[in-house]
Design a protein around this nucleic acid. Structure first.
Length: 597
RNA sequence: GGGGUCGUAGUUCAGUUGGUUAGAACGCCGGCCUGUCAAGCCGGAGGUCGCGAGUUCAAAUCUCGUCGGCCCCGCCA
């Protein structure tokens, strides 16, 4: 840290910069009272700012000023200015745990700049504090070393990303926050348009259409660190507003985007944590991914692959299994090595997880030391079937098998969760491992099971796989897309696609989605029109900045890397947002409340 | 929209089968103290048991509702 740069009218140095080389210097520091140890005749103050902690000593005998009265008044989180002389600490009193621990500042002058109420929780990272109270007093929470570090890591990542993108000739271009509503996809945040009674803007779910139009404008390589808004339920890794590193390129294919993205992640990890990644990352097609892991964002830090055990149980005595197999379902399971010793309670817990994910439950089988099989269905199914299952699954003595039957959509969902649950339970997750994965060849559409309607699995501008174009009308669900996701340790940290740049193909997609020409014209006419004026082939990706930052910081909630996040019920606990507004404001916006509270 | 879990002092928590004045630690306030660093010692203050009903002679404790934090399902093109 270049202390020269941080010098101001208030300070000569920071609370993190002094070393024994500074012995004898007259310095002025400003900061917060972190801790104090009042011994009567001598008072120690740990003074804190962004840069660190420095011990200040007030000595009744040696101080030039009568600090007796002032120093004793100091309390936690007062803002103070201290003048004094740097000196080495007496022998035996060096604090090894502080970078500044070899020195202290002997105070000659103290000014209380700002007093503080007693803080509602301690800021020294000793002991847990409820998240509600932390969010309510977020400005104090953010003073804590941990959050200061997270915000710093996030900053470093953003700077690394910007430098990298700039090096590759990407232009940082802004796009509107007030957009045209798009009823597809996530729920929009709407903004009433005062000057257009009855009409609304929407906050961007992503800058998607604008960045595609920028490609038509010839910008070739665009990026933006863009705030996005989606009015959907929150999760530990989802907020109403979040930040994307949004990228779009022209005259490229999948490999070009993937290469740029891998380089981006490589740069971010090197610049923030000094970790060298080893691209290229593993790639896997969607179908294979779902078959092996049951989910499109598997955590590959551990194995526990899903096995198809249908053939083992075909014709067995268990009617439920036969019914499943006869109706196109499968029996699939995972082997947990060395877990045959699980108690009934533990097996019940596993079953509860399976039920929670929507199945009727799971079946377990444990392979005993003599190769004999114990199972929750051993009274129904005879031993040879278990032999076959163990053989198919590759389970050996001492292993546990857990399996679920049903349509693939169900077994995938349940087994993906069980895989995660069992890996955690078995301690198979290496916290220091970084398992990147590209998932490619997503299906272009997915069908809503309730309504039967098709919708885009990525977004409606995603290019279909050229080989599957002729199936667009006949077998739309078999059409693969040119979409790709990047996954890290089980989190989807980014996704994108090669876009459609041909207006005719785009219209065929809209038709397949049940969007009429008129509707398409109304909603996306401006994009289609733009494409009629020489659209370059293009594609891009959006990286979830919050999730990337979260993973860099090693936490499990993006709230930790967002200075002012919303609670899980979407409230700002500090400022108490959202809030009521005056009737007259609504009137001006041509809005009437129908819910009173 | 649904499920789980939690809600007691400023904070983190304990609180038995429903039964006397709801406790502990840390923090806070006061005093003592010249080498501490989560300082120490002595003393003190501090409670709408989230909120509202109900059951009961009696509710932090039981029941119902409600609000809020966290996690999950649905949702998240």
């Amino acid at each position: 840290m270049d202390s020269q740069k941080l010098q101001t009218q208030y300070r000569t140095d920071t609370c993190g910069g002094l070393r024994k080389e500074d012995d004898g210097r007259e310095v002025t520091l400003v900061g917060w009272v972190f801790r104090w140890r009042d011994h009567g005749g001598i008072v120690f103050i740990d003074m804190r700012d962004r840069y660190g902690v420095t011990q200040i000593v007030f000595d009744r005998n040696s101080a030039e000023q009568d600090i007796d009265s002032l120093a004793h008044k100091l309390r936690s989180e007062f803002v103070i200015q201290v003048k004094g002389q740097v000196r080495p600490r007496p022998e035996g009193t060096v604090n090894e745990s502080l970078p500044t621990g070899e020195v202290e500042v002997s105070a000659t002058h103290l000014e209380i700049i700002s007093e503080s109420e007693n803080p509602p929780f301690r800021l020294d990272d000793k002991g847990e504090v409820g998240e509600d109270i932390r969010l309510q007093y977020r400005y104090l929470d953010l003073r804590r070393e941990e959050l200061q570090r997270y915000i710093r890591i996030r900053h470093d990542a953003v700077i690394a990303a910007r430098k990298y993108m700039d090096t590759l000739s990407f232009l940082d271009i802004e796009t509107p926050i007030l957009c045209k509503p798009t009823p597809e996809g996530a729920r929009d945040f709407l903004v009433p348009a005062r000057m257009h009674p009855g009409k609304f803007y929407a906050l961007p779910q992503s800058p998607q259409i604008y960045k595609q139009i920028l490609m038509v404008s010839g910008f070739d390589r665009y990026y933006q660190i863009a705030r996005c808004f989606r009015d959907e339920a929150l999760r530990a890794d989802r907020q109403l507003e979040f930040t994307q590193i949004d990228i779009e390129m022209s005259f490229i294919d999948e490999d070009d985007i993937i290469k740029v993205t891998e380089g981006l992640m490589e740069t971010i990890y090197r610049q923030t944590l000094g970790i060298e990644l080893k691209p290229p990352f593993v790639r896997m097609g969607y179908d294979e991914c779902m078959e092996l892991y049951g989910i499109d964002r598997p955590d590959l830090r551990y194995d526990l692959q899903i096995k198809d055990l249908s053939d083992a149980f075909r014709g067995c005595e268990f009617r439920v299994f036969n019914q499943i197999l006869d109706t196109g379902g499968r029996i699939r399971g995972i082997v947990v090595p060395g877990a045959a010793g699980y108690s009934r309670k533990e097996l019940d817990d596993i079953n509860a997880v399976a039920v929670d994910m929507g199945s009727k439950g799971c079946v377990w089988q444990r392979v005993g030391g003599g190769g004999e099989h114990d199972s929750s269905i051993k009274n129904i199914v005879s031993q040879p079937y278990f032999d076959k299952a163990a053989e198919l699954a590759g389970a050996s003595r001492g292993d546990l098998l857990v399996f679920v039957g049903g349509p693939d959509s169900l077994t995938s969902k349940v087994l993906a969760r069980l895989r995660q649950y069992l890996a955690a339970r078995e301690g198979l997750i290496d916290k220091n491992k970084l398992s990147f994965l590209w998932v490619t060849d997503f299906p272009l559409f997915e069908r809503d099971e309730a309504t039967g309607a098709l919708s885009s699995s990525h977004h409606p501008f995603t290019s279909p796989h050229p080989e599957d174009l002729d199936k667009l009308e006949s077998e739309p669900e078999k059409v693969r897309s040119r979409a790709y996701d990047i996954v890290l340790n089980g989190y989807e940290i980014g996704g994108g696609s090669i876009r459609i740049h041909n207006p005719d193909v785009q219209r065929r997609i809209f038709r397949a989605l049940g969007i009429s020409d008129e509707q398409a014209e109304y909603k996306f006419g401006f994009l289609l029109k733009a494409f009629q004026y020489g659209a370059p082939p293009h594609g891009g990706i959006a990286m979830g900045m919050d999730r990337v930052a979260m993973l860099l910081c090693g936490t499990d909630s993006i709230r930790d890397v967002i200075p002012f996040p919303k609670s899980s019920k979407a409230s700002g606990l500090m400022e108490d947002a959202p809030a009521m507004v005056e009737e007259k404001e609504l009137l001006e916006l041509h809005i009437r409340k129908i819910v009173k509270k």
